[in-house]
Simulated scan of single mutants.
Amino acid sequence: GIRVPDNNICRAIVKELGNPIVSTSIRDEDEVIEYTTDPELIQEKWDNLVDIVIDGGYGDNIPSTVIDLTTDQPEVVREGKGSIEIM
């Protein structure tokens, strides 16, 4: 699958590299929040496991829209952030 983020930092990195990057959301064990979006907490927890953490400010906790394009007919797997109007 591919992810097309609405984030200027991610798009600038991809443009500069000239190819896509691999990334993931950071699932949180906390029962209150589903994903960690605080850059300082991410740095604290993952600093020894990643090459770099870029502080672009707080993110949001709205899951992305997922569309299955593996068949002739696109199928919405999960509707979240991101318009499905083009379907």
Rank of each mutant, 00 (worst) to 15 (best):
L69K: 00
I21R: 01
E31Q: 03
K15R: 12
D72L: 14
G57I: 13
T71N: 08
V14A: 11
I42A: 02
D55M: 09
N48S: 14
C10F: 13
Y58F: 14
I84E: 00
E79P: 01
R78T: 03
P74N: 00
L41S: 04
S25C: 12
S23T: 14
G59W: 06
L69W: 00
D6K: 10
G56K: 03
T70S: 15
T71Q: 11
I42Y: 04
D38S: 10
G80N: 05
D60P: 02
I13Y: 04
K45F: 08
A12L: 10
T24G: 07
Q73S: 11
E29C: 04
V53A: 07
V14E: 04
V50Y: 07
A12D: 15
S23Q: 01
M87T: 00
P63R: 09
I54V: 13
G1W: 06
E79H: 12
E34V: 01
I26Y: 02
R27D: 13
I9C: 02
L69F: 07
D72K: 11
D51W: 13
E31P: 04
I52L: 15
G57T: 02
K81A: 10
N8D: 13
I54Q: 07
E31C: 06
D60V: 04
I62T: 05
I9Q: 01
P20E: 09
G1C: 04
G56N: 09
E75T: 05
S64Y: 09
L49T: 11
I54T: 07
E29F: 11
P20V: 10
I13D: 06
G18H: 02
D72Q: 12
K81Q: 10
G80E: 00
D28F: 09
T24W: 03
I62N: 08
T36L: 15
I84D: 01
V32H: 09
D68V: 00
D38W: 03
L49R: 09
E16Y: 06
A12C: 08
T36K: 11
V77H: 00
I86W: 07
L41P: 01
V32C: 06
E75D: 01
S83C: 03
G82V: 04
K15V: 14
N61K: 06
Q43D: 05
L17P: 02
E79Q: 09
D72R: 12
V22I: 15
E75Q: 13
I67Q: 00
E31M: 07
I33D: 08
T24D: 05
E40C: 09
V14M: 12
I33T: 08
R3G: 11
